[in-house]
Design a protein around this nucleic acid. Structure first.
Lengths: 258, 258
DNA sequence: ATGTCTTTGTGAACGCGTGCACAAAGATGG
DNA sequence: CCATCTTTGTGCACGCGTTCACAAAGACAT
């Protein structure tokens, strides 16, 4: 079984759909804001607006957690904050290690949003000896040789990878071998992990490319006619051996056989 | 229409499903790696493994782009790189502005993955006067008052927001008013935008919380029995007025009426 | 207590995405 | 030219997620 799983394997734990789980942090953030303003209760409509989702979806999401909420009134903000926090496992704190303290890693380490909710950066790890010992976010960078020891001693089960792409899989393997079972990957690579290990990836470049696609589509629609360029027949450009992509832009004639 | 749309409005442009669009950059990356190794052709099975997806899914994805690929052989790597690049709009280059040059913003500006594929950082913008003029990633930071001018002069249609949460909506509004129609948001806030503007968000905290959920679930399953805690009845904790959340952890008795 | 009004919780329908499984297409060898 | 083998392209079925629409539940006023 060489090519390990990268997808979430199914994950509907007790029946809470994955899509719902992904929205719970959103609700929690909106609720926390309300809580800080001492708002006692909130309706599904209001909260949905604050979280940017459909109100029916929000109610259904909450129904998976149980029947909180009072008809005719809405939801008790504090109570809901507690329930969602508990459901997400944020009532305990999670020690995490971050591997790869370059530009991005250092920025993430300094990012307050990390420690804010139940997460505690237990260690920063890098492979560059000249980096070791230097303080980043008030914490000395440690050498990668100690990775296993650090994970074990701190009981770390969540790791963040912010290394270059080339090192990511190797670091991932070591983290998993050391006992880490959840990985947040910022390196632009597909990670292979054994079953039982969750990987979530954050890729800036991919997000931009998706935006570019929609942007191009919008630009095309504006100019009308020739905008939505038709499929291109294969043989036309198959002639571009191993060097193509030099035509201006929307070249290559149409004609789709069948 | 106060609460603008945050979701992708439908987006199946010419019929290319959103899920497929989101995978195209993945394929492109895998193909580029093959291209650099001068691999001439690749089968759907191999490419799917490299991209971490199902091979049938990959073939179906490609079928939306048209019928490239030769039965019995596979896909021409160079040709496919070109087609996907064109479909994603990467044959032109996209000037982008980045607003908020703090820790994260600076790291993103330095991140090579940005400029690599058709994207060009046209300007770095910040609201802190002490930041203005300082070079970041070989480019002087500009003051936020010039935002509109910068966007207009450079023909920017994609903006990246890396400001604190409090400033994000304000910056977003100015970007949109200036003509930006795609936004990549790193600030932990829900942005309201008018129709026609796409927003994608990247939230480190949310990703970690999702991992924590699964992590807690795994830990619960290991210890067996009491792990999957049953739904909690409302009234038990409804007594916690506006101050609750102090119980140890898995307190509150079960009992679900109906 | 009764009626009205607000808001939740959810049944049901619909649409999208996924993956299986296979026929068709083309390459390759004799 | 025919047979065989590989790999694509896709019809189909299934399951998940979203949304509508409404009955039930409770608050609140009379």
């Amino acid at each position: 079984m060489a090519t390990g799983r990268t997808h979430r394997p199914a994950t509907r734990s007790r029946g809470i759909p994955e899509a719902t789980v992904a929205r719970l942090p959103l609700y929690l953030r909106a609720l926390t804001a309300l809580s800080e303003r001492s708002v006692p209760t909130v309706s599904s409509e209001e909260l949905a607006a604050a979280a940017g989702v459909n109100s029916a979806k929000l109610r259904k999401d909450f129904s998976y957690l149980g029947s909180y909420g009072t008809r005719g009134v809405g939801y008790d903000v504090e109570y809901l904050v507690y329930q969602i926090s508990r459901e997400l496992g944020l009532t305990q704190d999670w020690p995490i290690v971050m591997v790869g303290i370059g530009n991005l890693g250092a920025a993430l380490a300094n990012y307050g949003g990390f420690a804010s909710r139940g997460f505690r950066v237990a260690a920063l790890i890098d492979a560059d000896p000249s980096m070791v010992g230097r303080p980043v976010a008030g914490m000395p960078v440690q050498f990668i040789d100690d990775l296993e020891k650090i994970v074990a001693e701190n009981g770390v089960s969540i790791g963040v990878i912010a290394t270059p792409a080339g090192a990511a899989q190797q670091v991932c393997d070591r983290l998993v071998a050391a006992g880490v079972t959840s990985i947040l990957n910022f390196a632009p690579t597909v990670l292979s992990v054994p079953d039982g290990v969750d990987v979530r990836k954050v890729d800036l470049s991919i997000e931009l490319q998706i935006l570019a696609f929609h942007e191009q589509r919008k630009a095309g629609e504006e100019t009308g006619g020739e905008a939505v360029l038709p499929p291109v027949v294969r043989d036309a450009a198959a002639a571009t051996p191993a060097e193509g992509r030099k035509g201006p832009d929307g070249d290559m004639p149409a004609v789709m056989p069948a």
